[in-house]
Design a protein around this nucleic acid. Structure first.
Lengths: 163, 163
DNA sequence: TCAATGGATGAAACATTATAACATCGCATT
DNA sequence: AATGCGATGTTATAATGTTTCATCCATTGA
C-alpha cells in the first residue's frame, strides 16, 4: 500500500494530479454535478503544486491558456469545487489548495510552510474531536472549522539550520 | 471570583471596555510602548462590542469622531495592537476583535456565531496541545495557529428553534 | 422539430480589504 | 537649537472578491 506523498518531499506529482482529476470525475458523476472544462482546468491548475494559489493567479494561468476570463469565472469555479469538497480555501492566505482527501468526510487541517509555501493537509481526527468538544463545552454548535498552522516544514527547518 | 462575561449574554459591557483599556495601559507601559490616542481609540472602538470590526468600520468610526484618517492609520494601529497582544485578527472574516486574555501567553481560539456575529475567545490548552502534537508528529515546527469555529452560539440556537 | 427551462458562462462595473511610498510632525535627548 | 526616531498624514495603488445582467447551450417535454 502506498503512502500519501508529502508535499515538501520529491514525489511523482503527476500521480497527485491524475488522482485528483480522477477523484473529481467520480465525485461529480456520483453527485450528478457537471465538471465542465473550466472547472476541471481550474482544478488541474490548483493541483500543479502543493502550494496554494490565489484566485488571480488562476486567472492569470487561464489567460495563458488563451482563456480570457473575468474574476467571476474563477470564483464560480472555486465555489463549485469547494462545494464538492475538491479544493479548500486557506483563509489566512486568501488562497486555494487541492483537497488531499476528496470524497472523505473530514475537517481540513493545514500545515503551511512559510518558507516553501507548501501545504500539507492532515485529517487528525483526535484534533477535530478536541475542537468539537471544546465548542460543545461552551454550548456552541460548531458548523465549520478553520484550522491553519503556519510554521516550517521539516525540509525548510534544515535549510534554516544552514543559514 | 467573577466569571468571564459571555459575549452573547447580557453583561456589564462597560466593565469589559474598562478592563481592556486598563490592561492595555499596563501592558504598553511594561513594554515601553506608546499607547497613543489613535491606538487607544481604535482599541476602544474594537471593544464597543464582542463582534469583530473590519478595518473600514473602524475608519468610519474614526471619521465620526472628526478624525479624518486614511486606511494606513487604522492598519498601523491594528498592527501595533496585534503585536502587543491586545487584539486578534479573525482571518475568516477579515476583521478584528479585542483579545480576551491580553497579557497571557495563549493561542487564540475563536467561536464565531454566524447569527449574532459575537465571538468568544477560548484558551482551551488541551486543544492547543493536540494541535501542536499533530504538527510535531509531522516534524512540522508550528509558529502560528489560526483556529476559528463558525456556528451558532447557545442563544442563537434557541432563536433558530423558534423559526 | 421546436420551444421552454435552467444551469453555466461572459462581461462590465463595482465593492472591499490592504499596502507602498514618501512627506511631515513632534517629542526626547543632546 | 540640532539631531534622531517613532508616529502620523497623504496620495495613490494593489489585491481580493461581488453584483448585475446578458447570453449561451444542453436537456427536456410537447
Amino acid at each position: 500500500m502506498s503512502q500519501t506523498p508529502l508535499p515538501y518531499r520529491p514525489h511523482n506529482h503527476r500521480a497527485c494530479v491524475d488522482q485528483a482529476l480522477a477523484d473529481a470525475h467520480r465525485i461529480c458523476n456520483d453527485a450528478k454535478a457537471r465538471l465542465t472544462p473550466t472547472r476541471e482546468r481550474v482544478l488541474e491548475l490548483i493541483w500543479q503544486s502543493h502550494k496554494p494559489l490565489g484566485a488571480y493567479d488562476l486567472l492569470g494561468a487561464l489567460a495563458q491558456d488563451g482563456h480570457n476570463a473575468a474574476p467571476p469565472t474563477v470564483y464560480r469555479a472555486l465555489d463549485f469545487l469547494q462545494q464538492h469538497g475538491l479544493v479548500h480555501r486557506i483563509a489566512s492566505l486568501n488562497a486555494f489548495v487541492g483537497c488531499a482527501h476528496a470524497g472523505h468526510r473530514h475537517t481540513g487541517f493545514f500545515l503551511i510552510c512559510r518558507a516553501c509555501r507548501n501545504v500539507l493537509e492532515l485529517s487528525a481526527p483526535h484534533v477535530a474531536e478536541a475542537v468539537d468538544q471544546a465548542a460543545q463545552d461552551e454550548g456552541f454548535a460548531a458548523e465549520d472549522t478553520t484550522l491553519e498552522i503556519a510554521g516550517l516544514c521539516p525540509a525548510c527547518q534544515q535549510e534554516g539550520g544552514h543559514e
